[in-house]
C-alpha cells in the first residue's frame, strides 16, 4: 500500500495528508503574520517612549516617572532577547497555569509568546530606525510647532518604517520558521503536523522533504511580497508638474484632433497675427 520508491511515497503522503499540511501551513502563517504585526506595534510604541525628550531639572516628576518606565522597557527587551523562545514558551504556558492559575489557551499563548518576542527585537530595530533619520527632520517638525508625539507619528516613524522594512521582513521570516518551537506547547503548526504525519508510516525523510519545500515557499513568497511593498512605499520616481498658471497655457499646448471639425486648424492664423483675431473664432478651438 505504501509505494516503494521515494517520489511515489511523496505523492502518497501528499494525497493522504494534504489537508493536514494545509492546516499546519495556515496555523504557522497566521501566528507568524499576526504576531509580527503586533510585535511591530510594540516596537514602535517603545521607540516613541524611549525617545521622549525630558529635562531632569525642569520637570523632575515627569523625569522620574519616565526613568522608571524606560527601565522596565529596557528590562523587557533585554530579558526577551536574551532567552530562547522555546524556553519562554514553556515558562509562560505552564508557569501561568501553575503560579497564577491562568489557563491560557494554546492559541493565546502562541500569539502572546511570538508577539512579545518580536516586540523585544523590534524595539531595538525601531530605535535604530529612528537614529537613522536626520535630526534636521525633528528640528523641522519642532520649528512648525509639532510636539514629540506629532513629530514621531507624522515625520519620523514613517521614514523610520521605510528604513527598517528589510528588518521587519527578516523578522517575519524568522517568525515563520520559529513558530516550529511552539510544538513544545502543542500548537498544531506545520512542524508538529509533519512530525505526526511522518510517524504514521515512518516516512521521516519524505515528510520532512515536503515540509522543507513548504517552509521555503512560505518564506520566499513573504520576502517577495515585502520587497514589493517596499517599492510601493518609495512611490513613483517621477512627478507630474501641475500647471495652475493659466498664463503659461499657450495655444501651442492644445491637442490637435483631426476628427473634430472645430479643431485647432480652423483658427484663422492670419487674423491672429494681424491682430484681427476675434473671440468667436477662438471659441471654435
Amino acid at each position: 500500500m505504501l509505494p516503494s520508491d521515494f517520489w511515489g511515497r511523496i505523492v502518497f503522503i501528499l494525497e493522504e495528508y494534504g489537508a493536514s499540511f494545509a492546516g499546519g501551513i495556515w496555523t504557522t502563517m497566521i501566528i507568524a503574520v499576526i504576531s509580527t504585526a503586533i510585535g511591530c506595534i510594540i516596537g514602535f510604541a517603545i521607540g516613541i517612549i524611549q525617545t521622549i525628550p525630558c529635562d531632569r531639572e525642569e520637570t523632575p516628576v515627569k523625569w522620574g516617572l519616565l526613568s522608571v518606565i524606560k527601565f522596565i522597557l529596557t528590562a523587557y527587551v533585554e530579558i526577551f532577547r536574551g532567552t530562547p523562545m522555546m524556553v519562554q514558551a514553556m515558562f509562560i504556558y505552564y508557569g501561568s497555569a501553575m503560579v497564577f492559575n491562568i489557563n491560557m489557551g494554546m492559541w493565546t499563548a502562541a500569539f502572546f509568546i511570538v508577539s512579545i518576542n518580536t516586540g523585544a527585537y523590534m524595539a531595538e530595530t525601531v530605535r535604530g530606525g529612528i537614529l537613522s533619520i536626520d535630526p534636521g527632520q525633528t528640528e523641522g517638525a519642532m520649528a512648525i510647532g509639532m510636539n514629540h508625539f506629532q513629530t514621531m507619528i507624522n515625520v519620523i516613524l514613517p521614514q523610520a518604517l521605510r528604513n527598517i522594512m528589510p528588518q521587519i521582513g527578516n523578522n517575519l521570516i524568522i517568525n515563520i520558521k520559529d513558530t516550529s518551537v511552539l510544538s513544545v506547547i502543542g500548537v498544531m503548526e506545520l512542524f508538529y503536523t509533519t512530525k505526526g504525519i511522518a510517524g504514521a508510516y515512518y516516512t521521516y525523510f519524505e515528510a520532512f522533504t515536503i515540509t522543507m519545500v513548504f517552509y521555503f515557499i512560505m518564506t520566499f513568497i513573504c520576502s517577495r511580497i515585502l520587497r514589493f511593498m517596499e517599492s510601493k512605499m518609495d512611490g513613483p520616481d517621477n512627478y507630474e508638474l501641475v500647471q495652475t498658471d493659466a498664463l503659461v497655457m499657450g495655444e501651442g499646448m492644445h491637442t490637435y484632433n483631426p476628427k473634430d471639425k472645430n479643431s485647432y486648424t480652423n483658427v484663422d492664423y492670419k487674423a491672429h497675427k494681424t491682430g484681427n483675431f476675434n473671440e468667436n473664432q477662438r471659441e471654435g478651438m
Binding site: 534636521g136 528640528e139 523641522g140 520649528a143 512648525i144
Partner: peptide, 14 residues
Amino acid sequence: RAKVGMCFQSFNLF
C-alpha cells in the same frame, strides 16, 4: 514655535 517660523540652512523638509 507655531508663531515663530524658522527656515534652516539644510531646508529640513519632510
